[in-house]
Computed example of a mutant assay.
Amino acid sequence: MDLRTADPEASRRFYTGLFGWTVADVPAGPSTVPMFVDAEGPWGGLTQLAPDDDRKPQWIPYAEVAVLDDAVKRATELGATIARPRVDLPVGSVLVIRDPEGALIALWEPASTASPS
């Protein structure tokens, strides 16, 4: 899961106050990323929406795939469109698709299998 928000600090206060969730700055290459964490480790990102991002604040589910390019090809063959382009990070690669009904889901290829396109 990833929470896309215009105000990460306000979202952090809300969810830590509501559920008692913990947010930690998790290393991601040369920087850190705020993540919701539990005893098993990080389970969800807390991402600031870019000023030019036309989406509203929202939760985005992630689905892990073996090969991102293959999953994107199959998704588009089945009628999906690309909502946000591929981003390659030190921990893996992600691309957001919109299914034929309009729902968003992020396709995630962990770095252990990621191959830059």
Rank of each mutant, 00 (worst) to 15 (best):
W43V: 08
D38Q: 09
R98A: 15
I105L: 13
S93K: 07
S93M: 10
G41A: 03
P116N: 04
G45K: 03
D38W: 07
G102M: 10
P57D: 04
P116S: 03
D38G: 11
V23I: 08
P57A: 04
A75H: 05
V23H: 00
P90G: 01
Y15V: 06
A10K: 05
D7S: 07
D53I: 06
I105M: 11
L107Q: 13
P51W: 04
T113S: 15
T16A: 00
R74Y: 09
G44D: 04
E9M: 08
D53E: 10
A63E: 12
P57S: 04
T32E: 05
V72K: 13
L104T: 10
E40R: 13
V37C: 08
V87K: 14
K73A: 15
A111K: 09
D25Q: 09
L18I: 05
D25M: 06
K73G: 13
G45W: 05
E40H: 12
D38C: 10
G79F: 06
D70I: 09
A111E: 11
R84W: 08
T22P: 01
R86E: 14
I82Q: 05
K56H: 12
L46V: 02
L18R: 01
A80T: 08
A63Y: 12
R13A: 14
G44Q: 03
P30K: 07
P51L: 06
P51C: 07
D7G: 02
F19Q: 02
A83T: 00
V37T: 11
V96I: 14
D88S: 09
P27A: 02
T81A: 11
A111T: 09
A66V: 14
R98I: 09
D54C: 11
G92T: 07
A24T: 10
L46A: 04
S31W: 04
P116E: 04
R4H: 11
G45Y: 04
A50I: 08
P90S: 01
A50C: 08
L78S: 08
V65Q: 10
A63R: 13
D88C: 03
A24P: 01
A63L: 15
S11G: 01
P8R: 01
Y62P: 04
L95S: 09
F19C: 04
Q58F: 09
F19W: 09
D52T: 13
A71F: 07
D54G: 12
I60H: 10
T47M: 15
W59N: 12
A6C: 00
T5K: 00
G20Q: 05
E64A: 14
R98M: 12
R13E: 12
A103Y: 14
P110I: 03
I82A: 07
D52I: 07
W43G: 06
T22W: 00
V96W: 03
Y62C: 11
